[in-house]
Amino acid sequence: MINVENLRKSFGKLDVLKGISTEIRHQEVVVVIGPSGSGKSTFLRCLNGLEEATSGKIEIDGVELTNPKTNIHELRQHVGMCFQQFNLFRHLNILQNITIGPMKVLNKSKEESEQLARQLLKRVGLGDKEQNYPDELSGGQQQRVAIARALAMKPKVMLFDEPTSALDPEMVGEVLNVIGDLAEDGMTMVIVTHEMGFARKVGDRVIFMDEGYLIEEGPPAEIFNNPQEKRTQSFLAKVL
């Protein structure tokens, strides 16, 4: 589904990703963990071209993202993303937040888009909020709307960048439940998170990153119970 080969990314002189290679299979849930500043967000943002790779190759469903000839906007329709700060469109109500993609990007009719949006809102447990504005919702509710907004594009992959770290503790569960449901429905996902319990539960594979390198990857049970690399061991000792 996603193929990453020797991905490098620098901001000026700062090398943030120093050659990442991995593969994400269809319907796989990959969890990315690692210390702050290790390049997790940058890695994720390269996967939908929000950051342009400095070198290396990224292929998504057979389309080479890193090829300058690729239509990046078209490709992003198939790669959904949820942000730490939700980033709902502040001037649009909840329903419009979800319909704007199908209507303006996919040129679907208003009726069809609204029908889909209501379906998705129900799925994330917010059927009664469609006329509200983002700033009238709690963080957990906003993040669930953001997930619905991404799903409205019918993506093949979903990327999550610390979807719960801006939330009050009592709201973390409701968002993780929605993501967990997606995993069960067979959505391919890459999730950056600090929620180790969640990583263990929904992850098919865990990637540990440090200082721009992919240090270690494997099934959650192996990484969490029996990490092979020193850096993984010391990181896990701190967070578990």
Binding site: L50, H73, M81, F83, N87, R149, M153
Partner: peptide
């Protein structure tokens, strides 16, 4: 306008 708004728009495929 917050940069996050533009990134969210880009992430749903807007030009």
């Amino acid at each position: 306008v917050d940069r996050g708004q533009k990134e969210a728009a880009a992430s749903i495929g807007m030009t």
